[in-house]
Write a protein that binds this DNA or RNA. Structure first.
Lengths: 345, 345
DNA sequence: ATGAAAGCGCTAACAA
DNA sequence: TTGTTAGCGCTTTCAT
């Protein structure tokens, strides 16, 4: 194994000079640096991670807490993971994935104390998220994908729910729909409420009112089977609804499947817009979903970059970002006029 | 920060005794151990990762190379990642995710040289996989999810393609189908061939012959849009096919959607079995897929456990595992007799 | 502009 | 059964 000492010996300099050649942390004669770098390349020298972490007290790893169990299949979660991992990797950091299905904050602390972890990326943020206070108390840098109820002091990348809701609802209105439903992840008061659900809920209510739309909420767990049940619930209880705004991604797919099973045609009998589907995923459903694009991959990259900028001591201007997303018109939406004509047939 | 020295001081022992109390690497008087452990708990002491790695030359991290880009959405990949991460975590290892979209073996070597990595888990294995030889040469322990053409010397968890193919084809035969198609990921000779594709292909050909079935192969890229095209190709070129065995997961979903678009009823007009869909995912499609369960989560756990057993020097009995999977009958398959009756209607 | 040297917190060989 | 000690490879302060 090649060490810094070996590089130093060959370059005829001291070990510390090698360090400075590599980091640029102090001025160095260009020729010396070039000579060292050449030898580094020749020997294929790679700094030892643990030694650096031990000596410098800094780690080139960040961790992502992710909610994963044996059925956890949300394609969006994978987008977040992939985006975050690539962003970290591009900056020379390794990404540690930490399952937090039954998240014990002490585990995070242990990870941090172990020195294995320079920062934490969190997803699936709850309005009142105990992990946040814990990380804050422990002085562990973190960034959220999502945000808590009062995120003023924290780093986050989240969606601009108002804009997204307005985009979707305005399109429904343009298509002539007046009576809409929106499908949310089940929010029970006894259970942690995620920011995404709560904020979407209020944004949709606000903008449907503003636009003169009649909006009814349907709650469902976020899995494909529950989505099928949600469809039936809608038909039985709100047969006059002509358009659906769908939040949880898996439920949405299940909902469409439930509609197919009942012989309902989308978009002829019901228009559907998803707001939590990345545009790269719209082909996973039939018909191709109309979506307000969820740029999950890029959002995760942004969150990582914020966190890394922070721990590297860089000036971070936009440490709180809200992203909207473009309307991508697929085949799951149609004007109401068609709808009625078809019904008349 | 609490260190081992602090624990030792309070317990009135030397630092090394604390180490042994913690690792059990040499015998220790029970009272001494208990006293030490009590203090460890009190102080909330967590060993420093980097120090241990530096001193011992061993790391409590393993890396998973995963093929991730901004559209990489295979739900199965997420199952692998989740299973592997949970397995590692359960044994006290941190899982490092390393994107290997354009995998440069030197990057892996750098990771290993950096000492950040005790073992590597690989997925999406090609028949001739340069990463494997590289890891072997570098002496880096690894386990594959999948396997190369000649994996005799290596650790792997893969599917028993023969059993899986036989299960699916036998069921088709029982249902009365004789003319089947199978949908594979595009295999071009100019491109690396993955083990899963090559092995499934030959297993299907073998067992369809054995069972007296007429099998035609359809190739497609593994994405939902390509699946739609694959459907059209099948109808135009092989209208007499009554059953489809589908391999790539995203293509399968796209294929179903393509069929819906053409107004084809599944399973009435065409029966479909997927062999690469975990049973927890069958609700993602309409109709609910009949599948030969892909136990991706458990397979990934197994791969991690093999790798960890190896690096911990444990006796590993089953370092090469082939998993089959049960037939899960959904709504995408029907007897041929119904098929013909329906056509007569 | 560069070198020397003292650790970082832990492991493991060697002693006792 | 336990203690002592010499590093692991690097960073960083203090000298030069």
């Amino acid at each position: 194994m090649t060490t810094r000492a070996e590089v130093a010996r060959r370059a005829g300099v001291s070990a510390s000079t090698v360090t400075y050649a590599l980091t640029g942390a102090r001025s160095i004669k260009p020729e010396t640096r070039d000579r060292i770098l050449k030898i580094v390349a020749e020997l294929n020298y790679v700094p030892h991670f643990a030694a650096g972490a031990l000596a410098g007290g800094k780690t080139k790893t960040i961790a992502m807490l992710f909610p994963g169990n044996d059925t956890g299949i949300s394609p969006v979660a994978l987008q977040y993971i992939t985006g975050a991992t690539n962003a970290a990797s591009a900056r020379g950091y390794a990404m540690i994935l930490w399952p937090s299905a039954n998240v014990d904050p002490h585990e995070i602390a242990a990870l941090a104390k172990s020195g294995l972890l320079g920062a934490v990326i969190l997803m699936e943020i709850e309005l009142e998220d105990s992990r946040i206070n814990y990380l804050q108390d422990q002085g562990i840098p973190f960034a959220m994908i999502g945000r808590t109820r009062n995120p003023e002091k924290f780093n986050y990348v989240d969606r601009d729910f108002e804009k997204v809701s307005n985009t979707a609802l305005t399109y429904f209105k343009e298509l002539g729909h007046r009576k809409i439903a929106f499908l949310t992840q089940d929010i029970k008061t006894s259970v942690p409420i995620k920011g995404v659900d709560a904020r979407f809920q209020s944004a949709i209510l606000k903008y449907s009112k503003k636009l003169g739309l009649d909006a009814v909420e349907i709650r469902s767990q976020n899995d494909a089977y529950a989505g099928r049940l949600a469809y039936r619930y809608l038909r039985e209880n709100h047969p006059d609804v002509t358009a659906l705004l769908a939040l949880p991604d898996l439920t949405t797919i299940g909902f469409l499947n439930g509609a197919h099973e009942e012989g309902i045609s989308i978009p002829k009998d019901l228009s559907v817009i998803s707001v939590n589907t990345p545009k790269s995923h719209i082909n996973l459903s039939w018909p191709k979903l109309t979506t307000v694009d969820l740029p999950a991959y890029a959002m995760a990259m942004a969150a990582v970059n914020i966190a890394l900028d922070k721990i590297e001591g860089k000036q971070v201007l936009n440490h709180q970002q809200l992203w909207a997303g473009d309307l991508i018109v697929g085949d799951s939406t149609a004007p109401l006029i068609n709808n009625m004509v078809n019904k008349a047939n």
